[in-house]
């Protein structure tokens, strides 16, 4: 079936079987491999994308359920060579090691800012990362990165 949606501000479409998951359409049909697949059980959050501004697991959504929506993937965050403040914070705070979980963590970070604002606390971040798994970092620097990224997003908006 024909699936049309807006990805990172650009209208895209693909002709795929109805059983195609959004993550497979992004990666295999559209070459957007920044969104990762870390599990088969909807538990890790490596596949997180924003769907109409809200974070969802793209491995647990049919591409057909995203018809007509606005999808934001990790590729859509940077402004040219300028990293998004949330991405820059992961770099500054060493919020990644192998980087496999990172796209999903960054997307979860954006949802955390949407829900709790730019003055979010480390405790709120820790609680709201309950659906994202990292096998490397031990999470401490990921929490720091999201707090730092949230503050930086506040400054960008205020400036």
């Amino acid at each position: 079936m024909e699936i049309g949606l807006t990805i990172n501000g650009t209208e895209r479409s693909a002709d795929v079987p109805a059983a195609t998951l959004l993550v497979d359409m992004l990666r295999d049909e559209l070459g957007l491999t920044g969104t990762h697949i870390g599990c088969d059980t909807s538990q890790c959050g490596a596949c997180n994308v924003l769907l109409d501004g809200k974070v969802v697991k793209s491995c647990t959504l049919l591409a057909a359920q995203a018809v007509g929506t606005q999808v934001t993937t990790i590729e859509g965050l940077a402004d040219g060579d300028m990293l998004h403040p949330m991405q820059a914070a992961f770099k500054a705070e060493h919020g990644l090691q192998c980087g496999f979980c990172t796209p999903g963590m960054v997307m979860a970070g954006l949802e955390i800012v949407r829900r709790h604002g730019t003055q979010v606390t480390a405790e709120q971040v820790t609680h709201d990362l309950e659906g994202n798994l990292c096998r490397c970092t031990g999470y401490i620097n990921i929490v720091k990165a999201i707090v730092t990224g949230a503050r930086a997003m506040g400054e960008t908006v205020d400036a």
Partner: peptide, 9 residues
Amino acid sequence: IGDPMVRNR
């Protein structure tokens, strides 16, 4: 219930 992604769907 679940996590933020589960709650959004």
